[in-house]
Simulated assay, not measured.
Amino acid sequence: MGVDLGRFVDKKVPQHLRCPACLEAAYPPVLVCWSEHALCRQCAVASESYACPTCRQGMVFPLKPSLFIKRAIEDYKIKCENDGCSWTGTVVNEKQHSNSCPFRKVFCKLCDSRYIFSQRDAHLDVCTEKTIDCPQGGRDCGGRSSGGRKKRRLMQEHLDKECAQWQCRAVPDCKTKTMRANLDEHEKGCRAAYDEIFQLKLTIEENAKLAEQRVPDKIVENLDFATSTDKALLPADEQQMFASTFSSQVVRLTEHEEANDFFIIDVYGDPPPAPTFRRLRILDRSDETPKKRMRLLCGAET
């Protein structure tokens, strides 16, 4: 094959400079018959009829170059045959450019496919014959030296059948690693256990909140019973004073961090200089006088 006519950038190549066999520019040109008809060397060598395609005379060997046609074609400028390259020059300089063109195509020594020279790294990222490390366990996957190094076309089989470094993804804190065949079953069980523990935690927290709400209610119930009982045992002139004083000075602290704590002020004595938080205590009042029982009931226990 000669030079593709589409590569010439200056002007159209005339008919007499074209190879009659491939219809491209006859470069390098050789004379093939006594009439000095020219063909490109590639077509002349590949001819099976050993006859000139123009005059049908027998070809004359050895083939001689046509200096006239050669010089004529070398006066034309051509562009690089590699897509993406902007180089232009003569056919004489083309070989030198082709050897260094970043857009030239070369053969991969691993898989025998062709790739653009400047995209070598991109090709190696997909080359089926390149040896790579296991993405799960690395070079020494499975505890064997280089056990995790496989050709890319064999890596998927290694991941499916050999690699035991597939980590559980069902629960964030789970560190379990296993083979891919066992991964789904493990993740289902791991997730179920996690959900069960989480639900149990929510139940415990809810029960704790309910208990905190019930404790102060029970204490107030006991306190109301004690005050009503002891109030009835006081003299008539002290009952009114007891009711107003006690109800205003025993304050329930629902916002305090311990729901069963109360702010206690002795109803029969002067208020303390500063409020203090004390825990209410329930006392046996069977052997106490009414006034002493109320002091004990409203007394403070550290």
Rank of each mutant, 00 (worst) to 15 (best):
N93S: 08
R285I: 08
N260V: 02
K291D: 14
E221Q: 11
H16K: 06
G147K: 03
V267A: 08
L296W: 03
I116F: 00
N93M: 05
R279H: 14
A181N: 09
S248Y: 07
S86M: 08
D10W: 10
S35P: 03
N99A: 15
V91F: 00
P28M: 01
V45D: 15
D287F: 05
K161R: 15
I282W: 02
C141P: 05
Q57L: 15
L63S: 14
R278D: 10
F262T: 02
R104I: 06
A122D: 12
T178A: 05
F61W: 09
F107T: 12
R41T: 01
K105D: 10
T178N: 06
D237A: 12
L159K: 03
C163S: 13
T131W: 01
V32C: 08
A46H: 09
D133W: 00
I219E: 02
D261E: 13
D195E: 14
C127V: 01
N222C: 06
T229G: 06
N260Q: 10
E288P: 02
C168L: 02
E257D: 15
K109Y: 01
F61N: 02
I69E: 04
R153D: 11
Q167P: 06
A274R: 13
S118T: 01
T289A: 15
Y115T: 02
R252A: 13
S145C: 07
V267R: 01
K130S: 12
P102H: 04
S228R: 13
C52W: 02
V3R: 00
C80V: 06
A164N: 09
C168S: 12
D133A: 12
E74N: 10
G84Q: 08
E255L: 11
M294N: 11
R214I: 01
S86G: 09
E36M: 12
A236H: 04
K150W: 13
P53Y: 03
C55T: 06
D83G: 14
I73C: 06
A226S: 11
D83L: 15
E255C: 14
K161G: 10
V91S: 03
V32E: 06
D217K: 04
H16S: 09
K291H: 15
E196W: 01
R252Y: 10
S49T: 13
L159R: 08
E238K: 13
F103K: 04
C111Q: 09
Y115M: 10
Q119D: 12
S247G: 14
P135M: 06
P20C: 11
N207D: 06
F246L: 14
G137H: 08
T203R: 03
T203N: 07
L23C: 05
R152D: 09
K12M: 11
L63H: 07
L234W: 06
I78H: 03
K95S: 09
Y115G: 11
A236L: 11
Q96S: 10
Q239W: 00
H16W: 02
S113L: 12
A38I: 06
S145P: 08
A26D: 01
C80P: 07
G89S: 04
L210R: 10
P172V: 02
G84A: 11
E129P: 09
I197Q: 05
R180Y: 04
G6F: 01
D184H: 10
D173Q: 09
D133C: 11
G2Q: 04
Q96H: 02
H97G: 03
L280Y: 04
G137K: 01
